[in-house]
Structure formats: C-alpha cells, structure tokens
C-alpha cells in the first residue's frame, strides 16, 4: 500500500470519533428532551404518579442530560450497549444484532440487483441514444425512481398478496442452510427487495446513462474506435471504466438511502429488521436501543464511505492523495 494512502486512511479514521460524538450527543439529547420517557409510557394509565416518579429517579432519568450521556457512553465504550425497554430487561446487543442481520440480508440482495441490472440497463439506454427506446426508457426510469416506497409497498402488497395470492403479505422467515439461518431464499424477501430495487435500479440506470453518454463523446473513445479496437473492448476498457468512476460515489448514497428506506419498508411490511426496531424504539422511548442503533449505524456508514473512497483510489489513480506518484 502506498504511504499516501495509509495516511489518508488514518486521517479519515481519526475523524470517526468526532463524527460519533456529534451524532451520539445530538441523538441522546433529543431523546431526553422529548416530553415523556419510557417509564411513563410503559406504566400506562393505571400506575400511580408517585411510583413512576420513584422509578424514574432510581433509573437515573432525573439526572442532568450530560451526566446521563457520559454514563451511557462510558458503558458503551466498554462494549455494554445498555438495556432495552421495548423488550424490557433484555440487553440491547441481544436485541439489535439479530435484527441487523435481517436488514443486511435483504439489502445485500437489493444492492447486487440494483447495480447488476441498473448498470447494464443504463449503458444500453445510452447506446440507444437517438432511437425511440431512449426517451421511453428515460420515462420509465423517472417513473420508478419517483414513486416513494410509502406508495409502492401497498401497491405491491395488493398486487402480489391480495390479487395474485402468491406472496405472504409481510413478515420474515428464515431457514437453515449449511448451518446458517438465511432468509434470502424465502418468499418473504421478494416484496422488500422489489420495493427497494425498483427505484434503485431506475436511479442507477438513469445516472449510468448520463455518464456513458458523456464518456462516449470524449476524444479518447473516438481515438479508440478509430484505431480499430473491438467495440466490446472500447466499452469495457475505456467507456465503462470512466463512466463507473462517479457511480462508485453513488454507492455511498445508495447505502444511506437503503438505511432510510428500510425504516419505511419494514414498518409497512412488518419485517422485524433494524428499521422496524428503530421505529418502535422511538415510539416507546427505548433510549439505549435508539443510541445503539445510531452508534452502530453511523460507524458502519462512516467505514463504508471510507472503503468507497479507497476503492475510488484504485479505480482512478489521479484521485489518490497528492504526493504519492506511482
């Protein structure tokens, strides 16, 4: 690994604690400033106000917010993510990691499909420039990219479960394959994958089409064609590689969009993943779980972005940090 890259990575990693501090403190304070806490919500209408107050005091909910924050983060740094109150009395780690595994499974399928279908589709559309297929495909892409999951999910649900009766209306199931519990071969995965892949493919294809068209107009493509290279070689070696460059950045945004989309998709379809858990945790003021989701989520996201930046460097040496000349 070139020296420049190593410093670059270290510099980026040093930023991680700063980002985590800002994100976690904001989340923590916002949660505590909400007007009611989990003891009150859990207690319901029958409990005595004095009982609620006593439990709140004992659980440290009356302490100043910074004190509570330091206490939580101190534990979190030692690996103790706290105790869930939505699943009362269970350690947060026991609650969130099985949920994350579910969300990761269908999102991995979505990512593979989005890029696997979107990139060739976009390139195809670019190469059909000037024919009737081009505006048609743009229209279709725009349509699917614009339909929010809040609308597409109920429509898909209606079509596949009520009308056709071929898919379960929601939920999640797993079966064991080679000793691992996997849900990617179950029919429960079809609806969430469709709901997230359709707009994803459309977005990527639309973007890829623009990139390819831009590259096709460049001098070096004309040169490559002129010197008699095979068309497939021109596309794979020259066009695709150059068009892909900005697409790698899109991967990061796609990842962020998926995390956001998961909350809607899981809530609408009742998939017990991390998105549904986040939604329920906020509803029930499950402070520790919300914090853990935010901490783990933002760490993952920052690391993923870092990997993308590094990948960027390998695809295009020009982007690698100045000073390291190969």
């Amino acid at each position: 690994m070139p020296a420049g890259l190593a410093t670059y990575i270290i510099r980026r990693l040093l930023l991680l604690p700063v980002i985590l501090f800002i994100v976690s403190f904001a989340t923590f304070s916002l949660g505590r400033f909400a007007p009611v806490d989990y003891v009150e919500i859990q207690a319901g209408p029958r409990a005595q106000p004095e009982t609620i107050e006593r439990i709140r005091e004992e659980r440290g909910l009356n302490d100043p917010v910074p004190v509570q924050y330091v206490r939580y983060m101190g534990n979190a740094l030692t690996g103790d993510l706290g105790i869930s109150t939505r699943y009362q009395g269970f350690p947060v780690a026991d609650v969130i990691f099985p949920r994350m595994w579910i969300t990761m499974q269908y999102n991995a399928v979505v990512l593979v499909l989005t890029f696997g279908i979107g990139l060739p589709l976009g390139t195809w559309a670019a190469l059909r420039r000037g024919t009737w297929q081009d505006p048609l495909s743009i229209g279709v892409f725009l349509f699917f990219a614009s339909v929010p999951v809040l609308i597409s999910v109920p429509l898909l649900q209606w079509l596949f479960t009520v009308k056709l009766g071929v898919l379960p209306s929601g939920g999640w199931s797993e079966a064991e394959y080679l000793g691992v519990e996997l849900g990617i071969f179950s029919k429960h995965i079809v609806l969430p994958v469709l709901a997230l892949t359709l707009p994803g493919v459309a977005g990527i294809a639309r973007y890829m089409r623009g990139q390819v068209m831009e590259v096709l107009d460049q001098d070096f493509v004309r040169t490559a064609n002129a010197k008699g290279l095979k068309a497939s070689t021109v596309v794979t070696r020259h066009v695709a590689r150059n068009a892909l460059l900005p697409i790698v950045t899109i991967l990061g945004f796609e990842l962020a969009a998926l995390i956001g989309g998961s909350i809607f998709v899981e809530t609408l379809l009742g998939i017990p993943g991390i998105g549904l858990l986040a939604f329920e945790s906020i509803k029930s003021r499950d402070y520790d779980t919300i914090m853990a989701i935010v901490l783990v989520g933002s760490t993952t996201f920052v690391l993923a972005m870092l990997l993308i930046d590094i990948a960027y460097g390998f695809i295009d040496p020009r982007i690698r940090v100045e000073g390291s000349i190969e």
Binding site: G116, T123, W124, R128, A231, V234
Partner: peptide, 18 residues
C-alpha cells in the same frame, strides 16, 4: 456496426441476470 455487438453483449448480460 460495432455498437450493435456491444448492445447485444449488454442486453445479454441484463437478460441473463433477469
């Protein structure tokens, strides 16, 4: 035309995936 072969290759990939 070279673009035609290219189109065919790409369509092939997409169709295969689908």
């Amino acid at each position: 035309m070279e673009t035609r072969r290219l189109v065919l290759t790409l369509t092939g990939i997409a169709v295969a995936t689908i």
